[in-house]
Design a protein around this nucleic acid. Structure first.
Lengths: 344, 344
DNA sequence: TTGTAGGCGTTATCAT
DNA sequence: ATGATAACGCCTACAA
């Protein structure tokens, strides 16, 4: 007479419990869950009933350990508060979710050291693939990454020597093109406003500089930056200080993102500087507000969501051993020319 | 004579490999990693050296399985593209990261059924705690949640009957207060603009309705909503259609979030409707743009980041068996009265 | 179609 | 302070 029955609501239900309850072996239950087509319909229904009534939830750790398949994709981004990354994330979640992968997301706070730590964390979960931002990994981190032998996509920027795959666009060229556009509209003294100067923002600045140097119009003191994170408020502040330090001669500003640009625009309005007549303002990222604000804001549109989708699809293709067209993908960009920079 | 040595770069390095390499037993290596104080310094250094040189990364699945401690916190939010949730997330990541927890994040797309599926996914990872949005779980989902026997916090709104813990604020009262403020400023015909009417937005609308009914000024056709997600563009569209359907008699609009409000504001400007003289506009959430746009936008400020922090701290306290002040926490809100609604 | 045996990499338990 | 042994829950072989 067995007296010590487990109270149903107490212990965690396992595969074996389900097997016992439905009078089959554990492996059959496992099959019902993972390869239902390999189990006869009668048994399948019988087992499924037990699963439901017991409220069984598989233990993914045991499954991952036994099968060395985690169904986890690791993602490392530098910041959660930056809309740029959250939109990439949306793309990743959309594709990965549909493909049955969980996403383990970490925030590296723009620090390669933090990133190294976080990548270790990710790798300890045996992810089947990895999406990480940029190419500024520490040496140790690169080692781990290479050793991992899983598909890895570095996103956001184009890298000369990617660890594995790479999806991004040419930030330097985008900065260059923005300046060309401003020059084309007849603006002459073009300032630069930047915050939190990560590698991609630096590249935009280099492009800006190059374009101005080519026409002999580069002025070092037209550049105003801060290590602080970007925000509308900071954009306004930087705009004011640019105006102050240049005695207001600047007639255009390239802001490295739209938050800064909106800040500059709103501040210009308060200072009674007419945009675009007296001042052109160009942003970056083309967030929704750019199109609707008055005057509408010129900005550089980049497929953030699409970048997340693309990176995810590449990983999934590799995991399914399907060929990918190329290990490097340039997503391109487009300058949305709007009222804030059109003087012609 | 053993000839089949594993090539160092091929197989995954395990605890045993490290143990062999440093001439100790596996458990000692485990201790070096998890309870270094229990290992003599000499051994500790010796083992650590082996760990580093082999590039060993612990297998978290094996660890979780053996210890039934996953160091994972599950988080379910309805949308990744809504800034409201990403800021809550920031708070969660900040606290959980510092406490050594990984965050497994899922997106439920505002659907209880999807949420049920996602909660199963979360639970299969044996999370030590859970943070989920709102109280609209399916019956089955509630069952799982109760069975899980882990700390759970439902966030964003105040619930009458939370599953476990609850952090949020009173959306209905906030809507009510907004209307009171508008009435106090002398606005008489107050419209309502809403999109993606989730439970919290519904509550704001009920508050709006109640406040107007109390003064006999509720008009059903002053309400315009859409199931679409919120955006600036949609805000503009809804504003136009509100003006059209009411022949422009409305002299104030309460928008359920700031994106809609900005859209309404920009559209009003294009329609040459003066804000706040002819039209008051009030938003919700108090995103940064509200403060800087011209005219500045009245909005309801809520501590999103703080809500994420609070929920996380509560979970951690419970996990550490420390007492919490209360299972229910009202984060409150504040109406930021700005130019867009000040006629006095 | 179904089941048996063994192992995945780590940790808890109990010894020494 | 260190180690041996047996789980943890599931899956991959292989067998029937």
């Amino acid at each position: 007479m067995k007296t010590a029955k487990k109270r149903s609501s107490d212990k965690k239900i396992t595969l074996v419990d389900v097997a016992d309850a439905s009078g089959v072996s554990a492996i059959t239950v496992s099959r019902v869950i993972n390869q239902p087509e390999k189990v006869s319909e009668s048994l399948r229904i019988q087992v499924q009933k037990a699963i439901d009534s017991l409220g069984y939830i598989p233990n993914q750790h045991a499954s991952s350990l036994a099968s060395s398949k985690s169904r986890v994709i690791g993602v490392a981004i530098p910041s959660l508060s930056n809309i740029v990354f959250t939109e990439v994330l949306r793309g990743i979640y959309e594709v990965m979710g549909a493909a049955g992968y969980k996403v383990l997301l970490v925030d590296t706070h723009y620090s390669p050291l933090e990133e190294e730590k976080m990548v270790r964390t990710l790798l300890s979960q045996s992810p089947e693939g990895l999406i990480i931002t940029g190419g500024d990994q520490t040496k140790a981190c690169q080692n781990f990454l290479h050793k991992a032998r899983i598909p890895i996509v570095q996103i956001m920027e184009l890298l000369a020597d990617p660890i594995d795959m790479n999806v991004g666009f040419a930030h330097g060229r985008a900065g260059f093109d923005v300046v060309k556009h401003l020059l084309g509209q007849g603006y002459e003294r073009i300032g630069f406003i930047g915050a939190r100067m990560d590698p991609r923002v630096q590249q935009r600045m280099q492009g800006y500089k190059l374009a101005l140097e080519q026409v002999g119009k580069f002025e070092k003191n037209y550049i105003v930056t801060t290590p602080e994170p970007s925000s509308i408020g900071v954009g306004g502040e930087l705009f004011k200080s640019l105006m102050a330090s240049t005695n207001g001669v600047v007639d255009a500003v390239f802001c490295v993102n739209d938050d800064l640009a909106l800040g500059a625009l709103f501040e210009a309005q308060r200072m009674n500087i007419r945009v675009p007549q007296d001042m052109a303002i160009c942003g970056f990222n083309d967030i929704e507000a750019a199109e609707y604000v008055n005057p509408s804001l010129t900005s550089v549109s980049v497929g953030r969501y699409e970048m997340g989708v693309k990176a995810s699809e590449m990983i999934i293709r590799v995991l399914n051993e399907k060929p990918i067209e190329s290990k490097k993908v340039d997503m391109g960009y487009e300058i949305k020319k709007r009222a804030s920079t059109s003087r012609l």
